[in-house]
Design a protein around this nucleic acid. Structure first.
Lengths: 249, 249
DNA sequence: CAGTGGTCTAGACCACTCG
DNA sequence: GAGTGGTCTAGACCACTGA
């Protein structure tokens, strides 16, 4: 057994489950930095034999670490330590898009457009208070800061209010386009924030093996006249994004 | 086997794991409302025999539902279906406390003061930019809306700025007290919002068996002169709380 | 005190992957 | 192709809890 793991041990006399004892000891190894990113944990079978427990018990500990997103790897490569991503902290006061946020943080915003099409959607028609055959531009994007996927975003734009959006390919800043090309004066937005677990699609986009806590933003953006022009649902990975607000007295 | 569960079945020919097949079928039963709050699932052993799988496989499905907080119960009572709590949606514009939020939602705010004492704390002294022997009132509270625990809140108040807070017992609104008793004019706040999993203490306070996604607020409240008077860290349960903001153009 | 879920074992087969 | 984790089984003992 490699020296790093020689000190691991479990004790059936302790009231805590064996798997939890092992989990916490491994946790210490990761947190203390004794195991860096890319390091390998022993194969489950080896560590089980060394500790004198069954493979299931070791596996349960490893599973917990995988669930915490601190362990990755599969197949021949075994179990590999992951690095927790750093959190960015955009200072958000007024209405602003992802591109602007990243620019101010000195990061490069890149966008991966998964879908960009004109749709009719009863749910959206109801949100926008439009007839049910109204047309919207629907965009699905993964947005990255310095190459790290930060958010998965579903957006709808009212094409009767902003017909020029129909020719948008989904890249870059939607707000710049609304302002400069559609010549719309934005009037503010109502936004809600929830804590949720990532859906399978989002977990996949962020590289999570299991659902992780995320911030779910829903935003309704209006033009100055009060008409709704944009509805967005964005899921931001909780391990990499902190939302900041200034509150007035 | 009770009629509700007679339709359950798993198939080894399908590429999906047996436990996941079962998990999704049970999920359907809960979501569709076929199983209401308080209903019982069959004992693991019984369902395992009925489906022709081992108890471990059924257990893994049940574990997943427990992890999702949709299953509770232990011991003789077996596995009992839980009801997901409704979410409240406070509309939050300017600086406002929990008590005010709940009042506007027509809910009664109650507070459970766990700790309320005068402390010296290097970390707080550093946040407040005070000498390290400075004294703060430290309050730990569970706050409830209509009796449901909504948030666990750690707060610190600068006693040199608001000496009258020293005699506070922690109940009611801190902001009313700061305004009316200490005669301080509040000047605004910086707030950050993160998505995290609840800590063991918080899980316990909210009645979670396992960590659940929560909104973690950190707020620094200043008086008009700019001096920091309050620092709060509040964890709001994600399944019961949606944060709403109005954004200016 | 009987039945429940929590934990653990020893062993097996599989799909995948990397050397 | 050898080694890895993913899954599953059959069986066991335990602590707890509610009837």
């Amino acid at each position: 057994m490699p020296e790093t793991f020689a000190a691991l041990q479990v004790d059936t006399e302790i009231s805590q489950p064996l798997w939890r004892q092992l989990y916490m000891q491994l946790d210490d190894l990761l947190t203390s930095g004794a195991l860096r990113e890319g390091a390998s944990l022993p194969p489950e079978r080896d560590l089980a034999e060394y500790l004198g427990v069954s493979r299931s018990t070791v596996k349960r500990s490893y599973d917990q670490l995988r669930h915490d997103q601190r362990l990755g790897g599969r197949g021949r490569g075994g179990s590999v330590v992951r690095k927790p991503p750093e959190r960015v902290q955009p200072t958000l006061g007024p209405l602003r898009g992802f591109t602007e946020e990243m620019r101010e943080l000195g990061k490069t915003a890149t966008t991966n457009v998964l879908q960009c099409e004109i749709v009719s959607d009863r749910r959206m028609a109801s949100i926008f208070q439009r007839p049910s055959n109204a047309q919207f531009l629907h965009v699905v994007r993964i947005r990255e800061g310095d190459g790290v996927p930060m958010t998965r975003e579903l957006a709808w734009y009212d094409l009767s209010l902003a017909p020029e959006m129909a020719f948008w390919n989904g890249s870059g800043s939607a707000y710049e386009r609304l302002r400069d090309l559609c010549r719309l004066e934005l009037g503010g937005a109502e936004q809600s924030v929830e804590a949720v677990l990532s859906s399978p699609l989002e977990s996949d986009a962020f590289g999570f093996d299991e659902p992780q806590p995320c911030l779910l933003f829903k935003r309704m953006t209006r033009i100055r006249s009060g008409a709704l022009v944009e509805y967005v649902e964005g899921t931001f990975r909780g391990d990499a994004y902190v939302y900041r607000i200034e509150l007035e007295p």
